[in-house]
């Protein structure tokens, strides 16, 4: 599942304040409502996943560029789910930053912990890394000014959806 990505037992681990705040909220929910099994389970598997990532677990798979998302091709994702009988509902997005100098350790950044639904975890990760939707990393690096500071503009097709097998549709204004 990790597609040959190496386990990295000797890494530094970085967790952003936003992920901390998300977990504080979830922990409070689990604490206030002991009968909220879903919150507790989600907190449990999130803690398991964070411990595993800290110990060097390679995650579930690498992320690839998709035009409808920010480019997270330097990141990996780990599936997290509160209900073992359903598809994992959450994702942890992280990336390994190589050491800048000999003797330093790889730094593993947890970028986002979020819902899988509508790719929210990936949109949050993109925002935190300052990456607009649909812009490749190479283009972002070549941009003359920080694209992330421009107004965020999701991309949508302004055309009607095309039906398969029909190429004689007329454009609609």
């Amino acid at each position: 599942m990790a597609n040959g990505y190496p386990r990295r037992p000797d890494i530094d681990f970085e967790i952003p304040k936003a992920v901390h705040e998300d977990l504080v909220t979830l922990a409070e929910r689990a604490r206030r409502n002991p009968e909220d099994v879903q919150a507790r389970n989600l907190l449990q598997v999130a803690s398991n996943a964070l411990v595993a990532l800290k110990k060097g677990h390679p995650g579930t798979h690498a992320l690839e560029y998709m035009p409808s998302y920010p480019d997270l091709s330097d990141c990996r994702t780990m599936y997290v789910g509160a209900d073992p009988n359903r598809k994992p509902s959450h994702r942890i997005v992280f990336r390994d930053v190589p050491p800048e100098a000999p003797g330093q350790r790889t730094r593993r950044e947890v970028v986002a912990l979020g819902e899988r639904d509508r790719g929210r975890a990936y949109h949050v990760a993109g925002q935190r890394l300052g990456r607009p939707t649909g812009v490749r990393l190479a283009d972002l690096a070549a941009a003359p000014e920080p694209i992330a500071e421009r107004p965020f503009s999701p991309t949508y097709s302004s055309r009607l959806p095309e039906a398969s097998g029909h190429d004689d549709r007329q454009p609609v204004d």
Binding site: H20, R40, A49, L50, A52
Partner: peptide
Amino acid sequence: ETVGEPFASMIEDGLRAPDEKAERDDG
């Protein structure tokens, strides 16, 4: 511990547990 309970205890248990526990949760 700055996140609070029950998260802190879960992390403590996870650090003590064998590594394969996390593998089980890996979707």
